[in-house]
Design a protein around this nucleic acid. Sequence first.
DNA 1: ATGAAAGCGCTAACAT
DNA 2: ATGTTAGCGCTTTCAT
Lengths: 338, 338
Amino acid sequence: MAGRAGVSVATVSRVLTGNYPVSVTTRNRVMRAVRQLDYVVNAHARALQVGTSGTIAFVLEDITGPSFAEAAAGVEEEAVRYGRICVVCATHGSEERQMAVIDLMRAQGAEAVILIGGSRNEAATKQRLTGYAHSLASSGSRLVLCGRPPFDASQPVSVVDYDNEAGAFAATSHLLSQGHRRILFVGGSDGQSTAEERRRGYVRGLSSFGIDPDPELQIDADFSREAGRRAIRQASERGVEFTAVFAVTDVTAAGVMRELRCLGLSVPGDVSLVGYDDVPLADDMTPRLTTVRVPYRELGAAAVRAAMDLNGDSRREPSHVVLGTHLVIRESVAPPRS
Amino acid sequence: MAGRAGVSVATVSRVLTGNYPVSVTTRNRVMRAVRQLDYVVNAHARALQVGTSGTIAFVLEDITGPSFAEAAAGVEEEAVRYGRICVVCATHGSEERQMAVIDLMRAQGAEAVILIGGSRNEAATKQRLTGYAHSLASSGSRLVLCGRPPFDASQPVSVVDYDNEAGAFAATSHLLSQGHRRILFVGGSDGQSTAEERRRGYVRGLSSFGIDPDPELQIDADFSREAGRRAIRQASERGVEFTAVFAVTDVTAAGVMRELRCLGLSVPGDVSLVGYDDVPLADDMTPRLTTVRVPYRELGAAAVRAAMDLNGDSRREPSHVVLGTHLVIRESVAPPRS
DNA sequence: ATGAAAGCGCTAACAT
DNA sequence: ATGTTAGCGCTTTCAT
């Protein structure tokens, strides 16, 4: 390449990186050679020299989840805005895979690793993540957590969060204010942090209306459609009475809605329903689903910003930004039949 | 690192890559040092030396599209199965961005670049892609196209396809066999290849029933929900009469369904509706959407396989695999009101 | 403004 | 079985 342009490799490097004065004629000569040879620099060689690769890793459970996908879009867009490239890895919920992915990204010299999603076991996970965070920090990288409880500020991990609990509180209050008293919460009590926080909001909503949470009204379910269906089936088999359902997730709500229909119950005529996330699906359901809006795209974007801000000096205090949620009222809630 | 273990760098390399005999004691010593130092190899240095990085690039328009997301999941899974890492880039429909992304991946030494989605202008795009393909091939990489018409076999590009036209034919035939004669096709005629092929299937379906396609019954729309709504609004304003709609995409169908409702029309009572893709949404709509199943996940997986198969000798004939589609009959189609 | 050369961290001959 | 060393392609002093 340098030969073709009749200049030294150093000169080629200078025109290509563009951070050093080069005479116009030389530059043209080089650029012509670049075109003729269809040349691109070797990113690995450059990264090896410069010490950084401009890669942002986004680690999620499953790309197929609409809220994760939305967040991924936010990460991707913001990453390219900063001239970075974005690699996305799925863990399929496995902790080993998560660990493997983080090591992989450390090997790649990723500028930041952004982890989205709740975690199963707060205490143990927190410890493990702290380990990751230090490993990453020691290689000049950053760990950013999305939608998880923050760490204490002494750890080199930033978190971009939203108020899960407040959203759930708002959703529950809405149902309550419409006159519902027997509200079924469909969501995990398996310790998944996101589900747990939402459940807390539900309980607090109830309490603020002076209602004692009835354990019978809380049914386990993960974030899948199938879990939503199963939950309703269980409730029905157990003869649980309720006039409204608060589902931990919009897609869980879709399952709930479907199973309710199978039982011959209409929404919102017989039972009201609210979801969480406000993914596109919510607006396509019939009736359109009342839900809690979570700014996932913005969440992703904020995560890369959090990562980049700390770029200069890695001794900077890790940030904790929390985004707001709000209730989106549509058509799936009505007052209970009297 | 080598110092800490008291061995040479070569030995460290040997135990870490594991492709060379090392005595058990030495291996243990090295592994201990690895753990103590929390060491990971520098992937760039390795790639620089070995000449390949084990990266598969997946290029799509928008991660948020459910069918793309599904394909991305297929790519990701298959890539990790092969021990590769997967970077996903969004082009947002811009050809320049697409070009930039491909160069970027060439610089990264990606083992393969997988491009999904139709293209606007077949002739020009084909030429441009041929250029990319040769560029990639010359750096030992591969271009794989997903869901696009194949190239002639002399070009170094593999394609993994599915029969768009046959699926559309099946969908249209289904409507026809239910007694519909005025079927509105909602989909682009802007030359987007996917839409175009689906439209051809629609026309052929009509023809096979001896019906001349009425231009009035074909309305422009891209793959978005909004486009679906707009199309129905237009049809209604123009006073077009129809008893069924075939939407180019499930999400377009969701828009169609919504707008139909706004017009006071019920599905399938007043008008029948079929979509295309069979994304999860289709099963969550009310009524559940009859649609054409496209095996997107398998498509993605097949794309990485196509890329890897050619790995050994790059002189091998590029492959063209085509996957099947089939109609999924649900509840959005009924015979027309007499 | 340009060239020469060192060196980034690794792997793969080539010794031993 | 292990150590020594060249060199992957680039950027970056240091000369000129």
